[in-house]
Design a binder for these strands. Structure first.
Lengths: 201, 201
DNA sequence: GCATACATACCGACCGGTATGTATAATTGA
DNA sequence: TCAATTATACATACCGGTCGGTATGTATGC
């Protein structure tokens, strides 16, 4: 592992990776310590308990996604609608990889922990809200450009996009079939296009 | 509790109810036994281990949903497209109740257990497939009626409906806000309508 | 000499699963 | 027909392992 990484970051990376595969409850603190190359004493130096870690991992994961997306090619499009549609395309391409790309920690945690860990849930909710806001900015610009007069609840549409992506990941996971995800996102793309009544570039 | 119920059914009902709130991992066998009014000895007489229970609860839940849906008013519509759209409406109405109606055990288990419990995952996948088939039958009829010549992957559309509903439940859970679910399903309804190019009855 | 950043050792609670006991119902056989 | 046998349907008690968390020690840098 990278020796220059701060220990706390190593813990967060290890926890994120393990929890993406196994979920929160199934991942023990000891497993995380082993993966991060430290011991329990070190762990509890940085996190006061497992829930604390859960919140931090949620935030850590979300920050990672943001930086990845900000550097991704779909961000370079001048047209705001293209940025949204290419974002969906990008998620599909990423999902074709062999790794953990067809997972989302936010979705996992939302299902597993919302009822039992209120602190993690609210952190999770905040990240989802930021994601929604992220999409809404482009949707607002697209609305201004293509639908200047018409009414459109861009926040609601952003939430719909997120929910559909999460649900498609969930169903693909249940069926162990990435194609479910890919096909569903084609439907989603078609729907967003139909709202803006514009063929894709 | 109803004394006439078979013990096995009581266990399944108790497990379903508890797991709908807390998830699979967080629900202990002892909790289930207490809720069902038996002891561990009784439990292990009917289920050989917890994974066995998980599979049975999945099937039990899905059978419940089927019978509830078969008796629901949306089934009475003669028009197949109306049956699909009213099914979505029905899910929205049901979600407005105060109980556990805005949950889906299949979705919960898919997220929590797909990676760690292959047996439960495959049972879960089978139930999702039956749900998809359930929708597909009406979509096929609607396709025949309204789109006789055009191509439409009804299985894919059925999966999309399911995924969107599950994702919307997930997001609503994260935000603790039923309106997310309601608003999302309005989008879904509009999309299905747009495919069949027909205003709702 | 004092805070920071860890390591070591251990505790107590919980939980899945087993081993075993027992009351009752079903089956069998003379 | 009815005692003898057996299978069913549970209850009781307990074990072994895991895991979150704590208490404490120690090396290093400031």
């Amino acid at each position: 592992m990278d020796e220059n990484l701060k220990t706390k970051t190593k813990i967060l990376d290890a926890a994120q990776s393990l929890m993406l595969r196994q979920g929160f409850g199934t991942t023990s603190i000891e497993d995380i310590c082993i993966a991060a190359g430290i011991t329990k004493g070190g762990f509890f130096h940085y996190f006061k308990n497992k829930e604390d870690l859960g919140k931090a991992v949620t935030r850590h994961y979300w920050r990672n996604m943001q930086t990845v997306w900000d550097d991704a090619p779909f961000r370079k499009h001048a047209d705001p609608l293209a940025r949204v549609l290419k974002f969906i395309d990008y998620s599909v391409s990423a999902s074709k990889g062999p790794g953990l790309e067809q997972r989302c920690l936010l979705g996992n945690f939302a299902q597993e922990l919302s009822d039992t860990h209120p602190g993690i849930r609210s952190e999770n909710s905040a990240c989802f809200a930021e994601w929604s806001e992220y999409l809404k900015m482009d949707l607002d610009a697209a609305k201004k450009k293509y639908l200047s007069k018409k009414a459109l609840d861009t926040k609601g549409l952003a939430d719909y996009v997120i929910a559909t992506m999460e649900g498609s990941l969930l169903l693909a996971k249940a069926h162990q079939d990435k194609n479910v995800y890919i096909k569903n996102l084609k439907h989603l793309t078609r729907y967003v296009e139909s709202i803006f009544k514009k063929k894709r570039p």
